[in-house]
Structures are given as structure tokens and as C-alpha cells.
Design a protein around this nucleic acid. Sequence first.
DNA 1: CTGAAAGCGCTTACAG
DNA 2: CTGAAAGCGCTTACAG
Lengths: 334, 334
Amino acid sequence: MKKYRPNISDVARLAGVSTATVSRALSNPSLVSEATREAVRGAIAATGYRLNETARNLRHRRTGGILALVPNLANPFFSQILSGVASVLGPAGYNLLIADTRTAGADRLLDYAEPSRSDGLIILDGSLPVSALTGRIPIVEACEWVPGLVAPRVKIDNRSAAGLAVQHLADLGHVRIGHVVGPAGNVLSVARLAGYEDALRSRGLPLVQSAIYQGDFSLESGRAAAALWLQQPQETRPTALFLASDAMACGFIGEVQRHGLTVPRDVSVVGFDDIELIAHISPPLTTIRQPRTAIGQVAAERLLNRLRSIDDTDEDTILPVELIIRASTAAPRR
Amino acid sequence: MKKYRPNISDVARLAGVSTATVSRALSNPSLVSEATREAVRGAIAATGYRLNETARNLRHRRTGGILALVPNLANPFFSQILSGVASVLGPAGYNLLIADTRTAGADRLLDYAEPSRSDGLIILDGSLPVSALTGRIPIVEACEWVPGLVAPRVKIDNRSAAGLAVQHLADLGHVRIGHVVGPAGNVLSVARLAGYEDALRSRGLPLVQSAIYQGDFSLESGRAAAALWLQQPQETRPTALFLASDAMACGFIGEVQRHGLTVPRDVSVVGFDDIELIAHISPPLTTIRQPRTAIGQVAAERLLNRLRSIDDTDEDTILPVELIIRASTAAPRR
DNA sequence: CTGAAAGCGCTTACAG
DNA sequence: CTGAAAGCGCTTACAG
């Protein structure tokens, strides 16, 4: 018993028809008579035939795959987006390929936009060079975006979302409101910082450098920001902080609690993203919810439309955010 | 200016050689004279030629991809494993395909082990049916495993790892030690429960049904377990709990804190996995660290070895775990 | 409704 | 060291 993989000719021979007919019976049955279809079905069952996708793809000059470029796969922030992407791509018959732009060597960068590698790109990493991506295969950007790249973007309005967070703190009566920014140069960091500044200005609140802390979205950088904040004089340091990610907010809260302070009694904290865990820590975190599954789904749908030439606009899709008020924010102590 | 994708014949023509020579210059340069190689290089640069992977794969009767089957992509637990997988597969020239076994329809299940879909499988979901996976392409299992499936497994010793957690609690002086199990029927749940029971027995501690709570690895199920625990009489309920996942431990701690209790003063808690966040909540969680990146890397390496016929053993790789003692555990109150 | 034939873009055993 | 030719497994315009 040899391990032989039957091909379309084996089926054709057994069914007593040509390979063309088998092919049609498979991909466009209405072109084939019922009797012939039945014969083909029988031959397929008898041989255990399965279509070779690689051959079909070669013939169709496509790959059958969509490549998602993620800055850091280990970061759980992306898994939910990818889950949304996968839920759309699977049923549509596309494979989801994933590449971690950090662990993949820079030499590999040029291959991303290779038409022989995938039929389309979903970009989740705004720090990629435009030149490597431009003009080869359809692209959609999700969450982050590459400045200068012409492609539809599926995202939230980061600037006004940041404004929501800060306004919430202002509404509670806070005057000295601080901000922990994301990674330097990151498009999201820039937009959220701008929203923070917008909100302070529109409320006539003080905008001072000492209330802005550098972060990089990570837990550890939130902890470090807290360490700085703890060293500042109590009378002048912020009574409330808006942090550009939930992870940083967690790190921040953990550190101030370790120093015997209480949130929100001693300091109010707002995060960004609404990752699942932070509803369960104490205090549960007030944050801006980002519809991550929906972002992934819509990005995948728009890319599929481009592949089918339905979507010919470069317009962005802006999805709504929501301020989720939990227990990490309160009026300032007086 | 037409958008024309040059192929190997275009390069051959320009270089004044045959396509066979171009092919050799690309994949086995030592077979080709330096002068010819140079000519080919020039022609490639001039035409902007890029190898078509699909065609090469068809010729080689392979796909160039490895498919990872994940039970739930949205669960961040898997992202770090996938990160390890990606870091090995990328440099080896393989694409990483990912499928979410939950969102993909059951009809798609049979396609997973399709040789035309991928060259090998990394299985992270122990609940898949053996029949759908058997005997088609090389498989490696990581973390979870499918009972009855003959394939190398890369995992930890869940049973003794659970024992470590329980022994730590016993060492602190706890007598009534409870356990929140993972999803019913899950291979990890079963192994960790067995390890819990082992440890109690070997210490001569009471093993009672009322100290075992059903969970499913999720935050919410940890919260629900806490709700049950809170209702039990203080004199008989466990003074310490080992939970089969960090997520459940977070949910548990959050709920008991919400009821005004303090961890570890009122109850000690040990989790499992060592996900990043739980070092930063308060109290920082004592847990069993699972080397997730390494699990992903080793799984990918073993699969690559199988594809190259280097690895011909079905033996499991057992990676070491570590008990990480933080602040969520202490001696029982007396 | 069906078949013969060309072709998608590569690779490689064979011959020289 | 190099080329002609067959072939990987499909699909589809063309002809009947």
C-alpha cells in the first residue's frame, strides 16, 4: 500500500471523463450534467482525492493567503484583533498568515509585500517603512498606520478618545491632570497626546511638562512613571493621570499601591484599550474601550472587498470608542 | 507602462541563458559559473524579478507553510507561544498560518491536516478529534495534546507543576487547600487536578469535594468560584487556593477584595502560567511559570526537524516550570 | 455538456 | 557548466 496522493487525473480516469470536467464539477458544477457530477463524486470518494490548493493558486495567479504584520505577537493586545481578522478570513476561504515584524529579520521586510507571498496585507505596525510596502498588493491598515502610505485605515479616533478620558477627569474636578505617553514616535502616542492637550486647553487647565511622563505602552514603563510621580512634591504633582495604555495603567497602579497609596483616593487613573483583565483588578480600571474584534473584522472585510475590486475608496473607517467608568477614578481629595 | 510581473523566462532571455540556469543560479549557485551568475544577477535587477513561491512550492510538492491550530486566538495565553513559533519559522523560510478552531466552522476541520494547506501542524488545542488529524502531515503538539494522537508533545509536567503550587501552600502551614479546576474534560485541567490531589495525599491533608470549584480558565469563572467560596462557612472553607490559571486567580482575587477581604491575609492564592500582568496587580500573584516562548520555539524546531526527517522520535519534550513566589501567599491566619 | 490542449512559473534528471 | 524537455496539479478559452 503506497502512500499515493491522487490527483485530478486519477479521478478523471476512474470517472471516465476528462480532467477539465472534473475541474468544472468541482469549481462550477452547474456547467456539468447531473449524471457526470454523480460519477465524479463517486470517483472522488473512491480515490480519496483532495484538491491541491497550491496548483489551483498557481493557475489563478494568487496565493490564497492574507498576511497580517504585527509589531509584537507576544503582546496580547493584538490577539483579539487577529481573532477578528481570522473570523472573517476563514469563512472567505483565505489563509491567515502572521509575521512578527520584530522577530523577522529586516532582510525579510521586503518580502512582505511580495505578491507571491500573500494576496493582501493587514498592517498593524505603524513603524514599517513605506517604501517596502508600496504598490504591490492591496493593503489595509488597522489600529496603527504608516504615515505616507495610501491605504484604507480601520481605526478609532485616538485624539478625541484621549479627550474623553481627560474630560472625565476634569468633570470629576481634577485640575492637575497628567499623561503617560506611549512609545516615542508611535502614531498612537502622538494622537493621544494631542487629544490630552486639546482637552486641557478647552477646559482651561494647566498644561505643564512635569505632568507628562514618557512610556512605551508596557507595564514596566507604567511602573517607572509611577516611580517618578511618587518623587514629585505632593502639592504640585497631578492628582489624576491618563495613561495611553491599560498595561501602563496597571503598572502605575501596582507601583503606587506598593508605596501604600490608594487608588482613586490618592490618585485617579484612566487607561486605554479596555483589555479584559483590568475589569478584575482592584480597583477596576476606568478606561477607553477600543472595539478590537470589530477592528479586525472590518479590516479583513475591507481587504477582501479590495481583492474583489468592490472597495475602491481609500477612505478610513473610524470605529466608535466608549469611556468605561469603573472604580479607579474619583473626585480629588480636598 | 504595463504592470507586468516578470518571470524566470524574462530573466533568462535578458541574461542570454536558459531558465534552468536562472533557476540554478537562484537555488544552487555553486552549479553555475561566476560569469553566468553575474549575468543572471544583472538581469534580475534589470527586470525586477522576484521568485514565485507558489510555483516553486507546486514543483516541490510542498506549501511552505506551517499551520498552528489555536482554540481561541483572542486568549492572550497563546500569543506568546505563537511568538516563539514565529521566531523559529520565519528564519527557516516557512510561513506561519494560524487558524482559530473555534471560529472556523466544523466543516473546515477536515481541511486542517490537508497536505495542500500546510506542510505541518502545531496543535495547541487538545479538544480536536483525532480522526481529523491522523496520518496526513507531520504534527507536533504544544501545551495541550489530543489524547490518542501519536505525535511529539512539547509541554510541561502539569501534574507535578500543580504539586509544586500545593506544596508551597502546605509549606506555609495551610491545611484546608482548595482548587479551582480548568474546563471540564480539558487535558490540562485533569492533569493539574491530579497533581493537586497527589500533593494533598502525600502531605496527609484533607481532600474534600467542597474545596474543589469548577472553572474554565477564564477570569469570570475565577470570580464565580470566589462567590461560592465567600458563601461557605469561614471555619471550614479553604484558607488557600490553587487555581489552574492566572486569569482565574485574578478574577478570584478581584471578587474577594470587592467583598472587603484581603489577600493573602484572609486567603492565599496561587495561579498558573505567569502571564505578564499578574506581577503588577496587588498583591502580585504567586504562580507557576510556564516557559511559553520556549514551548513555541521547541515545538517549531521539532516540527522543522520532522519535515527534514531528522526527528524520528515520538518522545515528548518536557520543559521545566518554576514556582514564582510573590505576595499573594502567606501563612494562614491563626 | 464535454474534451484536447495550452499554460500558470517554477525545478531537475538527463544528456552533452 | 549548460540546455531542452518533462512535469508539479490544476483551470479555462476554444471548439465541437
